[in-house]
């Protein structure tokens, strides 16, 4: 029974991936890409990798799907047909050969790892020193913390890149209003946004707190917050802030800066990103909460896009 489920799931993953690659219409490709991401999430769930499943569905399928749909709308507005055109046979064969070679290399590397030598055996004995139970959080925030620290700055860099695309004269304005233009649609979306935003906040705060001992964490929670902010923005419940607001800038850099400061302070305790004994959990939770806020706001603004001219009506809520 489980085998049949796994088999069907694998076939559906390969099928949705193939359709997303080969279909000519961009919107159909995006729809199948989102379905593919959700099915991949199920597969990770089947492998007991709940943290990865959450991240795959929230970020891989959710945020990326929204970004792709918006990118297509932008292409259409610019006069691009947003359909794939045929490429030369030689190029396609070359891409096929390169991808096949990469798959063989990757498979060889993964299959060469003996099943009993997983990271879990190395990490498990070190966990009691941290005071948290979730080993993924342990790796992300303690044993390989510099990866996460760099990631948080990369995300900030991505927003700077998007902002640098602002047309001349629009800086430092607001992004284009994500609110729906049609009044009845705006009311429907607004009612939903008013309900969803507080729930998303509670849910996200819980995901960070649970992330110490159960699946969850700053990235998953940040995506939930970004989703709540965007839905509220679409219904006009909140307005998007202008990109030079001090409060907004503070929210964007808070997580990375607190992370960096705690990491540097670790030098006193023995090295960069080393937590003093007994304080590990408190510091990890502090980093996760500040990081969650920054990730949520950054993701929402990434989707909102660069500042646009003429999008400067007064902001009802002060901050996005």
């Amino acid at each position: 029974m489980t085998f049949a489920f796994d088999l069907i799931l694998c076939l559906m993953i390969l099928g949705t991936a193939a359709i997303a690659l080969f279909v000519r219409d961009a919107l159909a490709a995006i729809a199948f890409f989102i379905a593919f991401g959700n099915l991949m999430g199920l597969a990770w769930l089947g492998l007991d990798a709940v943290n990865v499943a959450l991240a795959e569905i929230a970020i891989g399928a959710g945020v990326t799907g929204v970004l792709l749909i918006l990118a297509r709308a932008r292409l259409l507005a610019l006069g691009d047909a947003a359909t794939s055109t045929g490429s030369p046979l030689l190029l396609r064969l070359g891409a096929l050969a390169a991808c096949a070679g990469f798959v063989v290399l990757l498979a060889a590397a993964v299959l060469s790892i003996p099943p009993e030598s997983g990271l879990d055996r190395v990490v498990a004995p070190l966990m009691p020193g941290l005071g948290i139970e979730n080993r993924v959080t342990g790796v992300l925030l303690a044993f390989r913390a510099y990866d996460t620290l760099l990631e948080s700055f990369v995300l900030l860099g991505a927003l700077v890149a998007v902002w640098s695309l602002a047309p001349a004269g629009a800086w430092p304005g607001r992004p284009a209003d994500p609110g729906m233009a049609d009044a009845p649609m705006r009311r429907v979306a607004g009612t939903f946004g008013q309900l969803l935003l507080p729930v998303a906040l509670v849910m996200a705060a819980y995901l960070v707190w649970a992330g110490s001992d159960l699946p969850g964490g700053a990235f998953q929670a940040g995506t939930v917050l970004a989703g709540g902010l965007l839905v509220a923005g679409m219904g006009g419940t909140i307005g998007l802030p202008s990109s030079d607001q001090p409060l907004l800038r503070a929210a964007l850099v808070l997580g990375p800066v607190v992370f960096l400061a705690i990491g540097l302070a670790g030098v006193a305790a023995g090295g960069l990103l080393v937590y003093p004994a007994g304080l590990a959990k408190a510091l990890i939770v502090t980093i996760e909460y500040t990081l969650f806020l920054s990730i949520g706001v950054t993701l929402a603004l990434l989707v909102a896009g660069p500042p646009m001219p003429g999008a400067s009506d007064p902001d009802p809520e002060g901050k996005g």
């Binding site: 049609d182 649609m185 429907v188 309900l195």
Partner: peptide
Amino acid sequence: IAAGTTSQLLARR
């Protein structure tokens, strides 16, 4: 709730 909201929006559109 999400399905009700999106179907309203789709129908209006």
